[in-house]
Simulated scan of single mutants.
Amino acid sequence: MKKVLIADDEKAGRILIKEFLEDYPNLVLIAEVNNGVDAINEINRFKPDLVFLDIQMPGKTGFEVLNHLEEIPDIIFSTAYDEYALKAFEVHAVDYLLKPYTKERFKTAVERLNSSISKIGELAQSVFMEDTAYPSRVLVQYNKKLITIKCEHIVWVEAYGDYSKVHTHDQAYLSNFGIGDLEEKLDPKLFLRVHRSSIINLDRVKELKRYGKSYDVTMDNEEIVRVSRGYMDAIKKIML
């Protein structure tokens, strides 16, 4: 038997989850809240085994809630926002239910919980927690899908606010990781930070052109990446 808590600021969302939970007598609802602050307090108080967690809530977002918990329970995100799906991989969520979802989709999430196999967690482990020091693949967003691409296919990475754009030869993908986080995850033998907003794949460099006291790097997809003066020493280290 698992203790369940629902954190969702929409009453309709809470009602739907409670209705679907009726088919699972082993999942016992112990509390429901409608904001992030109460979610933190009640989760720390009751120590539920499973939380159905909305993302955009008053007080604290779902991700902020997780940062204030004494113990992290199993999490199934239930949200109307698809742009946070990649970030759900980072916290090893059991599943990511995108509203409006069906009873069958809810069942799939519960089955992942019961089998102790999270497809999200499993994929995240295969991508970001390989036996090697650096992953051979990364997760990116393409339209409304999540796909993996091989790191060797990355031409360069561009800062995009709190996120990053991952450029391949003919496509740009969105990553929920900031450029600093990606820099740590990518193999430094292959990837070089050349600007506070840019990381290049050294194997994909076509040519360097002098630009004032710095350089412009032409990548093999013909895109040009500027080297800032602060990163010139890094460029000089790879010159013969």
Results as ranks from 00 to 15, higher is better:
142 Y>M: 03
29 L>G: 00
121 G>Q: 11
11 K>Y: 08
141 Q>Y: 01
222 E>H: 04
225 V>A: 03
147 I>T: 00
203 D>H: 14
165 K>V: 04
77 F>I: 11
164 S>W: 14
127 V>P: 05
239 M>D: 06
31 A>M: 01
31 A>I: 00
72 I>E: 09
163 Y>D: 10
230 G>Q: 11
87 K>G: 13
235 I>H: 00
71 E>G: 10
229 R>H: 13
61 T>D: 12
57 M>P: 05
22 E>A: 10
205 V>M: 12
150 K>T: 02
161 G>M: 07
237 K>C: 08
31 A>Q: 02
234 A>H: 02
19 E>G: 14
208 L>R: 05
37 V>T: 14
19 E>T: 14
46 F>M: 04
10 E>N: 10
160 Y>M: 04
216 D>K: 09
13 G>W: 00
9 D>Q: 08
190 L>N: 12
201 N>P: 15
158 E>S: 01
195 H>N: 07
108 T>N: 15
205 V>H: 09
169 H>A: 02
204 R>S: 14
199 I>G: 09
168 T>S: 12
29 L>N: 02
158 E>T: 01
139 L>C: 04
35 N>H: 07
24 Y>A: 06
51 V>N: 07
54 D>M: 03
87 K>R: 15
78 S>D: 01
7 A>Q: 04
199 I>A: 12
182 L>Q: 15
124 A>N: 10
224 I>W: 00
218 T>D: 02
9 D>W: 09
